[in-house]
Design a protein around this nucleic acid. Structure first.
Lengths: 150, 150
DNA sequence: CAGGATCCAGTAGGATACTG
DNA sequence: CAGTATCCTACTGGATCCTG
């Protein structure tokens, strides 16, 4: 509310906000971004993952709605729209409408979105990279249930 | 299953698994860990966040069920149990039962869990650190709806 | 093509009560 | 203390239909 600069406020915020507290706004933000679709949309816009053909992987990139929809297999258009709206509202992506014959809409990461993507990329890559290990643990765990009682 | 080393398998996995694919196991793993409770439990066990009093912040630490429950405000015991079970099954945490008078159960991060926690910590901190910025964007966005039609 | 509006099933998740 | 079991609500999210 005061006339402090953004950097000033943010420095304070780091100490003020605590996601461990149920009532803290940062808790809601954590819930928002702790979402598989958010992770995948950011990853897609961030140029993450194996792309068919060569590409400027790792570079942020504007993508159309249908393009995103194809890339993130299994996402419904409702969820995609919803996720994009939320990300736009939070200032993570920009939505650009080009009034062509059938309208063209592109989404692109903002600086803020890109900073989050950097962090989220780690999550997705961790999941992909530790899959085997986790699968092994699950197998073991499930067998301990039916197996020996020790 | 084979006799390859963990690092060998992981190197392959990195290329095999793709969370963009709906059917890929890594997608399910991404869904699992893209959960606010997972993030908070890992953060708690990882010694994250401002702790009342001084503490060995940043160091993994064994915590009791009730302790976790208190630390993560707003979590129901059902969700906490469920989250801990899932994390245990996936090999992220160990559950230790000490047969004292009222039984004592402690949870602790495994090496695997700790590696994930390192990544997740970024998410939580990002949320706490960029709260102001996001709040500002939301405010702007919401006002564009009712405000001038440009 | 991009997405709003609806309907509706499935499930996440809270409240409560009981147990070793 | 550290759960398990049950009930029940509310929201998630998919499918479908419709519009600019």
């Amino acid at each position: 509310m005061a006339t402090s600069t953004a950097s000033e406020r943010r420095a304070v915020a780091k100490r003020e906000y605590d996601a461990f507290l149920a009532m803290c706004p940062s808790r809601q933000l954590l819930e928002r971004i702790s979402d598989k679709w958010v992770a995948l949309v950011l990853a897609a816009l961030g140029g993450d993952g194996p792309r068919p053909g060569q590409s400027t992987a790792g570079e942020p990139r504007a993508m159309r709605f249908s393009e995103l929809s194809r890339r993130i297999s299994g996402v419904s258009q409702k969820m995609l729209t919803q996720t994009l709206r939320a990300l736009e509202r939070d200032g993570m992506v920009t939505r650009t409408v080009t009034p062509t014959v059938p309208v063209t809409v592109t989404y692109e990461l903002t600086a803020l979105g890109h900073s989050l993507q950097g962090v989220m990329r780690g999550i997705k890559e961790w999941a992909e990279g530790h899959m085997e290990e986790v699968l092994t643990h699950r197998h073991e765990y499930d067998h301990r249930q039916v197996g020996a009682a020790d």
